[in-house]
């Protein structure tokens, strides 16, 4: 089984290998799995190529960049495309061709080879009107922001009925006005 190490753009493979899992958000592709050793999670791809999933995770972060949100939530947010691709050959083609197009537009190192977010965003700008981009972006609006585990990162408290609402829990506690 071939293991491909793919890291954050800006780091050469040599640097990545040197740093190993200490590199931070290092995505490793092993067989059909995308692994993140520092966050200790893996995502098994069923239909899409694992490289495609790794690129989708980067793309998701570039579309809705929140530096305080770990990769795993972006991975969860795009996972539905792998599931849908398994049921719908058209969707599979949409995603695989969309990612191939991104890589092609990004030059020799592909999309994830572009070091700066600005460079990747410039590529995304070229495709933002495409059904591929809109499928990814549209899916993220719910797929990312509706994860209950993500809410506390933004301070959002979610359901409150079971706690008796906020009448005794700070609905009017602002103290800086």
């Amino acid at each position: 089984m071939v293991t491909i190490y793919r890291g954050r753009p800006g780091l050469s493979r040599r640097e990545l290998l040197k740093r190993g899992s200490a590199a931070g958000a290092l995505l490793i592709i092993s067989g059909s799995a995308v692994l993140n050793t520092s966050e200790a999670w893996g995502l098994e791809s069923t239909t899409l190529k694992p490289e495609t999933i790794a690129t989708l995770i980067q793309m998701a972060r570039d579309i809705y960049p929140h530096d305080q949100v770990p990769d795993r939530y972006y991975a969860i947010a795009i996972k539905s495309h792998d599931e849908l691709a398994g049921k719908d050959a058209d969707h599979k083609a949409l995603i695989e061709q969309g990612i191939a197009d991104l890589d092609q537009k990004s030059g020799a190192g592909g999309y994830t080879g572009l070091g700066w977010e600005e460079e990747r965003v410039a590529v995304l700008k070229q495709v933002e009107g495409t059904p591929f981009f809109q499928a990814i972006r549209g899916g993220l609006v719910v797929g990312l922001y509706n994860q209950k585990e993500v809410w506390p990162i933004f301070g959002y408290e979610g359901e409150s009925y079971s706690k008796g609402g906020y009448i005794a829990r700070g609905f009017d506690d602002i103290d800086w006005l």
Partner: peptide, 9 residues
């Protein structure tokens, strides 16, 4: 520049 917690209430 300071919290509001505007979803409360």
């Amino acid at each position: 520049d300071k919290p509001v917690h505007f979803w409360r209430g």
